[in-house]
């Protein structure tokens, strides 16, 4: 099965419903984690990292842009409306990705935790890579093409965070403890990131992506290559499922910040 355009996709209501659900997940994941990255600007452990991290963050926002563009093409509304105006209930990002960077806020007393950031980005970028690789074979060609495009740079992002994981796991005791604590925490919260939500069956049925379980296995295999001693407990979804529109107050804070100027004058062209 191959669908070559938005018009074609929209001819089949069931198909386009599953397709849009999948793209919202991709777009919202990248959008939120990139927002969290932008809060780190100027606060990274050293200047070289600030340069590298902000480059990754910027690329990731670019990926979100491309996914929102696909949704705009499918008739979901303008990119900026999709990014800035949607209610939390219809946001589809994994809850773990909206989590605050640490204590304080980015303007005052930002006691951000580098261990959380390294663990989160490593787990997420590993997931993003296996998900996009699966999507390169998607029945929806415009999406498969974007996945191929993103995969030209995204593996470098993953490599960056993998190096951080290795370095911090194999250095001081304090660093290892901090990483392991954040990893255990992630294990309680990351579960919904790996899910496909309400349209999971349809996504697989329409060849939009491989099945949820298979993706999860691929992710776990990849993660285990870098972290030999993974937490033994099953992955949890402590705060529910972002794929089903459940979110935390951290998302409210993120949305209030990222849409503050946009909402200050909705008539305006910025």
């Amino acid at each position: 099965m191959t669908v070559n355009s938005a018009e074609e996709a929209n001819q089949d209501v069931a198909y386009s419903k599953a397709l849009k659900e999948l793209i919202y997940q991709l777009a919202d994941d990248d959008f939120l984690i990139s927002f969290r990255g932008s809060e780190w600007l100027g606060l990274a452990p050293h200047i070289e990292e600030d340069v590298a991290f902000s480059s990754i963050t910027q690329n990731t926002m670019g990926h979100a842009f491309m996914f929102y563009q696909l949704l705009e093409d499918l008739g979901e509304g303008e990119i900026d409306l999709l990014a800035h105006e949607r209610h939390p209930d219809v946001r589809r990002n994994g809850i773990y990705l909206e989590k605050r960077n640490g204590e304080g806020n980015y303007l005052e007393e930002p006691y951000y935790d580098w261990a959380l950031t390294v663990v989160r980005h490593f787990l997420y970028e590993t997931f993003k890579k296996v998900k996009l690789e699966a999507i390169t074979k998607s029945s929806y060609k415009p999406l498969a093409n974007i996945a191929g495009k993103v995969l030209m740079e995204q593996p470098y992002h993953l490599a960056h965070w993998r190096i951080w994981m290795n370095q911090l796991l194999n250095s001081t005791e304090e660093a290892r403890d901090r990483i392991e604590a954040r990893l255990n925490e992630a294990w309680e919260e990351f579960g919904d990131v790996l899910e496909f939500g309400f349209q999971a069956t349809e996504m697989e049925h329409f060849d939009l992506i491989i099945g949820e379980e298979e993706l999860k296995e691929r992710w776990m295999d990849e993660v285990a290559k870098t972290i030999p001693n993974l937490p033994s407990e099953p992955l949890g979804k402590k705060f529910g499922s972002g794929r089903e529109g459940q979110h935390t107050e951290d998302l409210d804070q993120a949305l209030a910040t990222l849409s503050e100027v946009y909402l200050s004058d909705k008539e305006a062209i910025w």
Partner: peptide, 28 residues
């Protein structure tokens, strides 16, 4: 940086992110 997460459109977000990243690069 105070305005980077708040930039009002996706394009402005991308623009200011790239800009501030350049500045850090100059610093380095």
């Amino acid at each position: 940086k105070e305005w980077t997460p708040k930039a009002p459109t996706m394009k402005r977000k991308l623009g200011i992110m790239a800009k501030v990243q350049d500045e850090m690069g100059h610093g380095q």
